[in-house]
Design a protein around this nucleic acid. Structure first.
Lengths: 329, 329
DNA sequence: TTGAAAGCGCTAACAT
DNA sequence: ATGTTAGCGCTTTCAA
């Protein structure tokens, strides 16, 4: 007849059962300091038998280390948090944090008030911050104190390592594909103007079109499908002879296809359409969407891991983007 | 010239500035116990001036309360965590937890080993659990100790309040729509067999078709698009005269449309297709997908809130699902 | 209404 | 290699 443990085992219990001091048990269990093999075994056995799990709160308190990871997304309105992209980042971080007992919270950083970041940093519960949709002013608002405990998905700074998809290479692959398949009047629907990382695609677009002697046709987008639908119409109105539209997000590209369809334009017959991200449904649209891959989960995992490990990360880590040719272009 | 706070303000600091004891400051700031209005003001002012933010670790330690919310998803493989649906649940929980300083971690609960839940519950860092894709055996594995700190998205039990979309009503709305538009040989692609909540749609399907004197045509699905594509072919092979396919997830429905297209079957001309969930891209497919809404974020928010508040929640809370008629059916 | 004091579970000097 | 000790910042009896 086993007594149901009314109380979870503490380090004290483990130490007593193992016949050592609390300090020794701590050293063994936290992998810090040294201990003789025999002691090590006894402590491990005791911990195992008691089902000992360290109390993260106690540990964080004494270490002064915080108990959660904050994911902070910059945007004009709180609606930026509704993006499936953000969901993926949060879920990836929540998976990385789990084995460490570190939870994730999600926050909106108003674009006009980057100092909101301060509140997050001043919170002793926060042990690290993953910045999303980072802008220059947000980067400027990162206090020194946060160094080594912050990473950015997007652009970085000397104090903030960056993790991002290789926008330029991805965009270039798409544009070359468009060109190789005979398109010569290629319009682009961009991402948010204020996002530097989104600007990289635009820069590449300008370079490639200029080098090939093609016209530059830019329309502002915001990564949403709704905007893509409108943008398609704008493109058609401004440049009726456009034969390809490259949107910097799949959602926007699908919106573009919908907008084109509204106008009775055939895809890819009349106009080719390409996206960026390779979301799961890109393969299922009609026509199936040609796009470039965007390993969001890998990127977010790397960013979260960098924050957790506090290991000096490279200033910038780019993840490759590969062309995924399908039917729409 | 302000001295940069080398150290974040503690309750002790607030108490000193306010000229009261730490205990009093605690009472005022934690909204517990009583204090004179004057004292209350002084403490609040001091906290404000110092930018005091309570240390969640210290609070959790003394209260024995845990510092994070665990989202546990049941599934045969860890791949269940890759679902965008899970991402949304996690992000919603991470938003709910943020103001409370409670982070979220994401865990896989192997379907064959529901006792894995124990590890989560024994972890003193976990203050609550949100179950996703809950099965009967997982529910059985919920220890008494967790009562009031657990909620389920899916089915529930006397000890675990459930939060879910009203699958039955949603499915019925879709099926009635199909019937009203002249479809008489309606096949259904189901969700996982082992998921009771997914079974509700099947039950409704059986009832509705039986009542209308229609044939029952069931094919097993798993919520993925890939499976939908295969399932479409199976339906066509087994029952060539099928005139409608109802899939219990939009991803599957889009897969069905792709599979149908592979076979040269027109949608909705030859076969109508309907989904369930109303994911953002349902509106953008070709043809636009007829479906029923599934307020995942609202559901997850409610579940997470119930766990946080520890308020006695109703045994079951169903969220309405509305028909979203578009072009595919 | 307020203060003094104890202690939550753990780690990290500092001794030995 | 191991034990002793002093807290980390907070809440909460218990008295006053």
């Amino acid at each position: 007849m086993t007594t149901p443990a009314a109380r979870a085992a503490t380090l004290e219990d483990v130490a007593r059962v193992a016949g050592v001091s609390r300090a020794t048990a701590s050293r063994v269990l936290a992998q810090t300091g040294s201990a003789s093999p025999a002691t090590r075994d006894r402590v491990a056995a005791a911990a195992d038998r008691l089902g000992y799990l360290p109390n993260p709160a106690a540990r964080a308190l004494v270490r002064g280390s915080g108990v959660r990871l904050a994911v902070a997304v910059t945007g004009s309105t709180e609606a930026v948090l509704d993006d499936p992209y953000v969901d993926r980042v949060v879920a990836a971080a929540a998976r990385v944090g789990a084995p460490h007992g570190l939870g994730v919270t999600l926050h909106w950083l108003p674009r006009r008030a980057p100092q909101t970041l301060r509140r997050l940093v001043d919170d002793r519960g926060v042990c690290g911050v993953v910045l999303v949709n980072t802008t220059g002013s947000v980067l400027d608002a990162v206090p020194r104190r946060l160094r080594g405990r912050v990473a950015s998905i997007g652009i970085g700074s000397p104090a903030v390592p960056a993790f991002d998809v290789d926008n330029s290479a991805g965009a270039e692959a798409v544009l070359r594909h468009l060109h190789a398949t005979g398109r010569r009047r290629i319009a682009m629907v961009t991402g948010h103007r204020w996002l530097v990382c989104a600007g990289r695609s635009v820069h590449t677009y300008r370079q490639v079109t200029r080098a090939a002697g093609l016209p530059v046709r830019l329309v502002a987008g915001d990564f949403t499908a709704a905007r893509g639908r409108e943008a398609a119409v704008e493109v058609l109105d401004r440049w009726p002879d456009t034969d390809a539209i490259f949107a910097t997000s799949d959602a926007t590209a699908l919106g573009v296809i919908a907008g084109l369809r509204d106008r009775g334009v055939r895809v890819p017959g009349d106009v080719a359409v390409a996206g960026f991200d390779d979301i799961p449904l890109a393969a299922l649209s009609t026509p199936a969407l040609t796009t470039a891959s965007h390993p969001v989960t890998r990127i977010a995992t790397a960013a979260a891991t960098a924050v957790l490990d506090r290991r000096p990360a490279p200033a910038v880590t780019f993840f490759p983007s590969a062309l995924v040719p399908r039917d729409s272009a």
